[in-house]
Simulated scan of single mutants.
Amino acid sequence: MSGQDEGPRKALRDGWPYFLDRIRQDLEPCGVGSMALASVATILIEEDRNRARLYEAGNISNPAWTMLLGLFVSGERGETTMVSTACIASGASLATAHRHLRRLESLGLVSVARDKNDRRRAYVSLTPGANGAIKGHLMHLQARLTTLTA
């Protein structure tokens, strides 16, 4: 990868902590329950970014998983997510992110819907089955982390 290509990716990675801090601030007053699971998802996203920075290798991240976690957090916050936003937040190139998103859709994990007022925009969300599976995974992870800190 050329140094010129690295610039936008580096800017995105460096900007990610601001996004995560904003999510964390929004979630802190919410306490336990689903919002606490959204906090666990946020931590997983942050750790993926930290791992990428630690090893300075862009190809050890998992854009599809990052998208799924981000969509889970957005859903728990009652927000809608544009396809372009999910792709950018994945940390991958737009072409790679779109490829992962199409794969997630073909697996029945996400649903993509066109904006009724502006056909150029599309929104993406987790399917109910994917939401339940991610919630179960995060609850399991949360329980494991709780036993470590108890």
Rank of each mutant, 00 (worst) to 15 (best):
H137I: 13
T66K: 11
G91L: 04
S111M: 13
M82I: 06
G58V: 06
A86R: 00
N62Q: 12
V73D: 03
A143T: 11
I45F: 00
N50Y: 05
G132S: 09
V110S: 05
G31C: 10
E6W: 05
R121V: 03
S61D: 12
S90E: 03
K10E: 12
R121H: 05
L107A: 07
K116P: 12
I23A: 03
L145W: 07
D118K: 11
P17V: 07
A122I: 04
S125K: 14
G75D: 15
I43E: 08
T42H: 00
A113K: 13
I88P: 00
M67A: 05
A57E: 14
I43N: 01
E79Q: 14
A57D: 15
W65L: 15
N59M: 09
V83C: 07
G31T: 10
M67R: 06
D5V: 03
M35E: 08
R49W: 11
V124F: 07
L126W: 09
G33R: 04
G7P: 00
L141M: 10
R49M: 13
H137G: 10
R120E: 06
A41P: 03
T96I: 00
L12R: 15
V32K: 11
V112I: 15
R53A: 11
A133N: 09
G15C: 13
L104R: 04
M1I: 07
L27F: 00
P29Y: 05
I134M: 13
A57I: 10
T81H: 00
R51K: 07
N59P: 00
A113D: 10
G31D: 09
L44F: 03
T85Q: 11
A36E: 13
L71W: 02
G3S: 03
L69K: 01
G33V: 04
G129N: 11
M139S: 14
A150D: 12
E56L: 05
